[in-house]
Design a protein around this nucleic acid. Structure first.
Lengths: 228, 228
DNA sequence: CGCCGGGCTTGATTTAAGTCAAGGGTTGTG
DNA sequence: CACAACCCTTGACTTAAATCAAGCCCGGCG
């Protein structure tokens, strides 16, 4: 494993405060690997054997059931995933696949659990990470249960405008197909939702989005701010 | 606070392995209180000031947005809730209200955070608790995104049959209104879903449910077992 | 340069679930 | 014991979103 990879991982909130010996032991057991696009990394129902850290590329977490699939989250570098299943030594609730060629560091789950029990600072950071994950899943669920598809898209666009482009417009970070699945609708419905948002301060052309009236869009996405 | 309450709390997974001095300090700062039914304990958007432990009664966690509400979880004694918001010192994502007269132990969030940073065993247990919470929220979300309302009800009934009555029939643990909201549908739809399940091995009369054909119901609820 | 092929859009139609409205049953209470 | 209140059910109807079916557009490749 390369030095710059080690540093990237060390800089994650999850590993930042870990004692150096624990970290080194953990990295000793870990290995870095390259994967092609469209490869299934994790299958739901299987035992969690590795904590994954994505250092390059993009990974989709999705759930499947009876020949249906839905996107649960999209992982961007540098981020760890599958921490909960590792700590609980449980089966995966979600599957994972690469969306592009990816570089991942795989850390054996047993070593993660050991470090977690031995290193208090790591345990604290793991708990924080899990709390954050829990809260983001709560937000996702709330959005699904309380908002219409149009409103979900509005909220999604506002969040992205904040993180990326700002008010001068930005490009959608993923394929619309994927966004639709993440937001819990079909690609057709997403297309129509974009049209409907034209009335609410959104201009869209292909992957290009410009928010022409932030206030109007916010009014649609969060009549009051309490949802997130 | 009474001795038997202290023992109940001590026996929770969250507090079981905590060092005795940490536990005692934490309980020193805590206090027990009785609440009437239908009282709002927590309002989403507010700062999390207390970790709550329910020792008697029943509490609903719900989310609200733009004059809509939806049930996110129902808490039964003895269980702690709002751990994630406490640890992150963040605002509540959900509101909470008592469904019945309740007894709660309130532990100041600042003390929880302190104990959490100071006591490694507590940090480990907190992380486990959060991991479990995260996973249960993932299951809920998967169910919402991948199953029809009929299928969600089927899965809910199977889970309850397991936990309570067994095959000899059981009583629904809450009002149907509440179950409907938890499952993400209206009371009317729940009613129709029950009727539809008559064809799939479920007999229902008021709060009374008997599963007359478990296999048939399972076939409907989980064509393959991977969802949970 | 032209012709796939996939992703996206658009229109027509269906369907699951929500809404509205009314009535039945149960429970608690004066 | 009767009445009110609330929960639940049922029926009629509406609606949001899914499905089905073309067609379009754009990038990659022969």
């Amino acid at each position: 494993m390369h030095d710059h990879e080690l540093r990237e991982i060390r800089d994650l909130d999850l590993f930042r405060n870990m004692a150096t010996p624990s970290f080194e032991a953990l990295m000793q057991a870990a290995y870095s690997q390259d994967f092609p696009a469209e490869l299934q990394l994790v299958r739901q129902g299987m035992r969690a054997n590795f904590l994954h850290v994505l250092t390059a590329g993009r990974v989709e977490l999705f759930a499947e059931w009876s020949d249906q699939q839905t996107t649960m989250a999209i992982v961007e570098p540098v981020t760890s995933f599958i921490l909960a299943a590792c700590l609980r030594d449980a089966r995966h609730l979600m599957s994972a696949r690469t969306l592009q060629p990816c570089k991942l560091v795989l850390i054996p789950a047993a070593d993660v659990r050991a470090a977690f029990r031995r290193d208090p600072d790591f345990a604290v950071d793991a708990a924080n990470e899990l709390a954050a994950g829990y809260r983001s899943m709560v937000r996702h669920t709330k959005s699904l249960k309380l908002r219409s598809s149009r409103e979900r898209l509005a909220a999604f666009l506002l969040r992205n405008a904040d993180e990326h482009g700002g008010s001068r417009g930005f490009s959608l970070p993923y394929e619309k197909k994927l966004i639709a699945s993440y937001l819990g609708m079909t690609p057709e419905s997403l297309s129509r939702a974009f049209r409907a948002l034209a009335e609410h301060g959104v201009h869209n052309q292909g992957a290009r989005v410009t928010i022409t009236d932030v206030e109007k869009l916010k009014a649609l996405a969060s009549p009051n701010a309490l949802i997130e």
